[in-house]
Nucleic acid binder design. Sequence first.
DNA 1: CGGTATCGTCACTGCTGAGTGACTTATCCC
DNA 2: GGGATAAGTCACTCAGCAGTGACGATACCG
Lengths: 212, 212
Amino acid sequence: MLNTTDMMGGGDAPVRDRAATTARILKAASELLAEGGFQKFGVNAVARRAGCDKQLIYRYYGGMDGLVEAIGRELAGWVEEKMPDNGGGGFLLTYGDLVERLLLLFMEALRSDPLMKRIIAWEMSENSPQVRKLADARARALGDWIARVRAGMAPPKGVDTGLMNAILLGAVQQIVLSAEAAGRLGSTVLKTEKDWKKVEQAVQKLVRGVYP
Amino acid sequence: MLNTTDMMGGGDAPVRDRAATTARILKAASELLAEGGFQKFGVNAVARRAGCDKQLIYRYYGGMDGLVEAIGRELAGWVEEKMPDNGGGGFLLTYGDLVERLLLLFMEALRSDPLMKRIIAWEMSENSPQVRKLADARARALGDWIARVRAGMAPPKGVDTGLMNAILLGAVQQIVLSAEAAGRLGSTVLKTEKDWKKVEQAVQKLVRGVYP
DNA sequence: CGGTATCGTCACTGCTGAGTGACTTATCCC
DNA sequence: GGGATAAGTCACTCAGCAGTGACGATACCG
């Protein structure tokens, strides 16, 4: 008789609640991914962290693939959660204002989200269908955001805005990931809020350059 | 008159030449890294590919760390090799021209170098001292390049050129890595030379925006 | 009360990798 | 030739991970 519930007090019974367990597994997986990156991400590690047997991961999620998919589903609303449609309250007069707002919001959102940072880093170094799905969902969400917010505002002529915005977004991604991995970008240290203010200004300048 | 296997016939003597073997190991490691990425990069895999026992990796390089270091040393001259000092033969009149040249050269050089692509992806998703060294060396080399080539040309005022160039460089990195990993950047496909021409134009526009 | 579905655990196989000690064999040099 | 040195190989331990089959335990329901 090991940890049977009936004993009062510290009896830490295995709770026997599927919903709670699946949630615990998902949480463990997300945290693990956020903290350790995809390198240490595996069935054993997740099970260990969730405090249950790995068999349950196979039963409830069908293995790692299903689990990653579940994480993706959880993250589907990321853009909606983190990036308000009203762009922070200001009036957006020009297309450039809009893109600038997008980039700064995205940078801030990404900076404060370890999980998303790890996932993007993952996307950069693997090509599995799993990872691809995550990437697609995010890209689509950002596209939707801009389509929704721009609300009829005309994009400037003579510029492939889709490509240009993708490049700018990529630049922001790179900045944040580089700061995460190395604490700096090139030779500029990125630690304090002050450093980041400078980055924001540089990004602004970049946007105003292409979308005057 | 040593290793010339002058003995006749199918004698598959193991050649017994340290210099050649160390070189073979290094080559195998580089290729493996370039082809499979850092995920499948390990002592066993390298030894298998080099056609020798892994023991030799420990003996000659002191393990994977030393081997990575050797790769780094080999890559130290990457910038010098791939990026000509005269900027491709044109005259560089302004600081903007210079940066534009740097970015386009860098993009081209990176695109054609699988190993460097993998290493940068590696840098993005790990933080070990080993990998850090690789990143540092590359960043320094690029900084040296620009310092050397700019040859007294005055940078524009009102711009933190160090930071701005780092951002632009990061953008280019991101473009190339994204193309490598997913075949596209955001929703724009990056396959044909034509696609890349468009990217180059966008990068040019970006540079001219900040350094008019 | 008894049966059954299901939540949870255990023990195991098969595989791959890092790292090491002991061994064999070729080459160098006197 | 003959030993010393170094190149190369083998066989092993230890650990971690993915995946699976069988087993225990409990809550639910008639």
